[in-house]
Amino acid sequence: MAIALVLVLIVVGSVLFHFLSPWWWTPIASNWDYIDNTIIITFWITGAVFAAVVLFMAYCVFRFRHREGNRAAYEPENKRLESWLTIVTAVGVTSLLVPGLFVWSRFVTVPSDATEIEVIGQQWQWSFRLPGKDGKLGTSDTRDVSADNPLGVIPGDPNGQDDVVVEAADLHLPVGKPVKVLLRSIDVLHDFYIPEFRAKMDMIPGSVTYFWFTPTRTGSFQVLCAELCGQGHPLMHGMVMVDTEQDYLAWLGQQQTFAQLSTPQKTGSADQTPDRTMPSGLKVAAQLETVGSR
């Protein structure tokens, strides 16, 4: 009989845990509260089904447990009941799928006023590129990657000259403006994930992937890599700061363009961040060293 009681406790315990435990998603910071809502719908429907099935089982185990002289009923099938259950399930599943696909179509439809920015992953750090005054990102190619051109911007492309390059440092974004994030990797798979934005997408060497979102509140948000990319994967953190318009412009003014960076002699290399000359991944590699020898 213990099992019937335990089944009931599992349902009660799981529901209480869901509502009372302190572990829940982080406060959202993007327009994707649609996704949160879809999750909530899913929790309600699946939670109800879970409770119903397990409680029904508990009842059966209690009510039809073996006692001396008991005999089971003989009922091979019941077409009516089976069709009803099939129909009800199909309705339930549809009520999850339809809102889901509706939100997905928003997710894949980038608004026309979204600003394109680029995120580049490499073992094991994040870099960023923003279009310059022309509003266009220059084309890129992994084979152009070198110490002077760490993001592989094609040097001959005029669109690329004024691109703002942020190597291995924080990205800033203005609040309330939709952005389309173009994702690129120069070595292995990575995944640009910010829990507060509820969005993520893999980056694939040789392709450009994308997603879009609108940051809805200012603050600093940690970037996590969400695709296994080698031993530095768990340390591949980055930072995105969502700023007010003025703060953003002030930050932007301090950044350097591709043209400036690729001719360091003229701009005076002393002003540059020391990070830039560090070979990629070295920071994390050094960190790994300390982890290993702890």
């Binding site: 998603w25 899913t42 999850l96 889901g100 997710f107 509820r198 993520k200």
Partner: peptide
């Protein structure tokens, strides 16, 4: 049903 429902998978995938 969370993970199969493509848009719900976006935040949850790889977690």
């Amino acid at each position: 049903l969370f993970l199969g429902n493509v848009v719900v998978d976006v935040p949850l995938s790889d977690t």
